[in-house]
């Protein structure tokens, strides 16, 4: 069982937790991406009355992580709310939970494309990008040629593993020596396959996918862009 897998980025040791969070022990920093809070009520506004419990469920998982790692800094990597009006639809109990989770720590909101404007009535500070000890925390990943090692979100990567006629699809971290692409943390967030061009283009030399399991985090290498699909099937490649 591996609750969190270690990974080195820019000379710093990070932990990638199976709950979909990044931990930087040396800096006592916890980061999560793409919470998409109030996505359920955004759907409800358009007539789809899906269970409005996503915000509470997402915050409960965040709360558990914060209690476990006791970070000094919490970085939310953008698209924390599903839309610009999201924070105003927070139910009182959820707003109170958010306040409880973030009290006593430094809260940094990175702005995303879904929530591009700072919200003065929310606690914490707002940043287009946050740089700490040479690591860049941003919402939309920079190009594959970027120099600064970065931690980003936005793309909601997931991966599919086929074994014995069954397919398991899970959100995942996608990592190489110069970037960590975070899985989406939101309860109602979908995913984009890591073989899809927007993700694959960020990892021209391949990398690893760390799939989030119930008990553990599972690591699979994948090859860079070649004509054939990278072997994620778990089978030994044909000779």
């Amino acid at each position: 069982m591996t609750r969190a897998a270690p990974w080195h980025l820019g000379g710093h040791r990070l932990l990638l937790d199976r709950a979909g969070a990044l931990v930087w022990p040396e800096r006592r920093l916890l980061a999560v991406a793409d919470l998409h809070l109030e996505k359920g009520s955004a759907a409800a506004l358009r007539g789809q009355l899906v269970p409005p419990l996503d915000t509470a469920a997402t915050l409960a998982r965040l709360h558990a992580l914060v209690r476990n790692y006791r970070p000094a800094t919490l970085v939310l990597l953008g698209d924390s709310f599903h839309d610009a009006g999201g924070h105003s639809r927070l139910r009182a109990s959820d707003a109170a939970l958010l306040a409880r989770i973030t009290s006593g720590l430094t809260l940094r909101w990175v702005l995303g494309n879904h929530d591009p404007a700072p919200q003065p009535d929310l606690p914490g500070s707002f940043h287009a990008e946050h740089i700490e000890h040479g690591l860049s925390f941003r919402h939309i990943p920079g190009p594959a040629t970027a120099q600064t090692p970065e931690i980003s979100g936005h793309l909601h990567p997931k991966a599919q593993i086929a074994l014995r006629g069954t397919q398991v699809t899970r959100p995942c971290f996608v990592i190489d020596s110069c970037r960590v692409l975070m899985p989406a943390f939101g309860t109602y967030t979908g995913g984009l396959d890591l073989l899809a061009p927007p993700v694959a283009a960020l990892f021209p030399r391949g990398g690893r996918a760390l799939l989030l399991g119930e008990q553990s985090i599972y690591s699979f290498p994948f090859a860079g862009r070649r004509p054939r699909q990278p072997d994620l099937t778990g089978r030994a490649p044909a000779a």
Binding site: I161, G165, V168, G213, E214, Y218, F220, P221, D231, R235
Partner: peptide, 19 residues
């Protein structure tokens, strides 16, 4: 398709070991 009652985690663990 051959099925088992194995959980998704068990399948992932097995696939990881194979890889």
């Amino acid at each position: 398709r051959v099925r088992t009652a194995a959980s998704e985690d068990a399948l992932l663990a097995e696939a990881e070991a194979l890889a």
